[in-house]
């Protein structure tokens, strides 16, 4: 059998390749592919570390947001128990960011943008919510970027998408506070009462700003892909607070204390993206 095979002229080794060598011939391209293998392995390892960190950061951010939702006043100090909780989580989150900062250095910042983006958006949501509770202001992109370790970039897209989600948190905060305290959260300006602001004013100014933002040029890439859906959710959130305030004014006194609007269905669309 093997004799027959050898007589057959078609056995693979019989041709005039330059690199021809009888018997156990290895591919001349092996060194090249070994190099590629090492490079690709490094890339996949980096990618996986980033995905994992992004997931952990997302989870920590969500927990921070849950804790912060127990705050009941604006521009006041955050109760020490809640502050301690969030600080602990924020510190852990910083560690996560630091651990992947080398993986996101230089040219790799954008290479793994899609992997880290989810974590950063959730992080944006958490720190912008905390910033709002403390100062009743929208955190700027520079302030937010400064809170991240060097090497971890905050893209404009992630910033905007995080702020879209902030509206959902503000809606929950406003409605829960209204239900438990019977009044809309806001702040008084002692010097100029005309500048008193409540959360509904803020939500409306967010909505106006978002609506004015022209993202048509983004097309199906980056921001353009998610904005449409988030815009709808954002508007719904603002309208919910408007309706709740209307309800509070019209029927507020008739409602039993502690009544909470049914939020069960609202949770999903706000959180899913």
């Amino acid at each position: 059998m093997s004799d027959k095979l050898q007589e057959m002229p078609g056995v693979k080794r019989h041709h005039d390749g330059i690199e021809k060598e009888a018997g156990s011939r290895t591919s001349p391209f092996m060194p090249m592919f070994e190099f590629f293998r090492n490079e690709l392995d490094e890339h996949h390892d980096r990618r996986e570390r980033i995905i994992k960190a992004s997931r952990d950061i997302t989870a920590a951010s969500k927990k921070i947001i849950f804790s912060l939702q127990r705050v009941r006043s604006l521009k006041g100090t955050i109760p020490p128990k809640i502050a301690a909780e969030t600080q602990e989580r924020a510190a852990a989150m910083q560690q996560q960011f630091l651990s992947i900062a080398p993986d996101l250095a230089g040219i790799n910042a954008w290479r793994y943008q899609r992997q880290i983006s989810g974590g950063i958006q959730e992080y944006m949501e958490a720190i912008s919510f905390e910033h709002y509770l403390r100062h009743q202001k929208l955190i700027s992109i520079e302030e937010a970027a400064a809170s991240l370790p060097a090497n971890v970039d905050l893209t404009a897209d992630d910033y905007v998408l995080g702020i879209f989600d902030l509206v959902g948190e503000l809606m929950r905060f406003a409605i829960t506070t209204m239900a438990t305290t019977g009044s809309l959260p806001g702040s008084k300006n002692d010097e100029d009462p005309a500048q008193d602001r409540d959360i509904l004013v803020d939500l409306r100014s967010l909505r106006t700003s978002f609506e004015a933002l022209d993202t048509a040029s983004c097309g199906g890439t980056g921001l353009g892909k998610d904005v449409e859906k988030k815009m709808e959710v954002m508007k719904t959130c603002v309208e919910k607070v408007e309706t709740a305030v209307y309800g509070m004014i019209i029927r507020g006194r008739e409602r039993p204390k502690g009544w909470v609007p049914d939020l069960a269905d609202d949770r999903a669309p706000v959180e899913s993206f």
Partner: peptide, 25 residues
């Protein structure tokens, strides 16, 4: 549009818009 004493510093969305426009270009 929000005034400076309001919640949103108008520069935030101005700079976002210019970033979006640069990107589009």
């Amino acid at each position: 549009m929000a005034n400076p004493p309001g919640m949103i510093d108008p520069r935030i969305f101005e700079s976002l818009q210019s970033k979006i426009d640069e990107d589009a270009e």
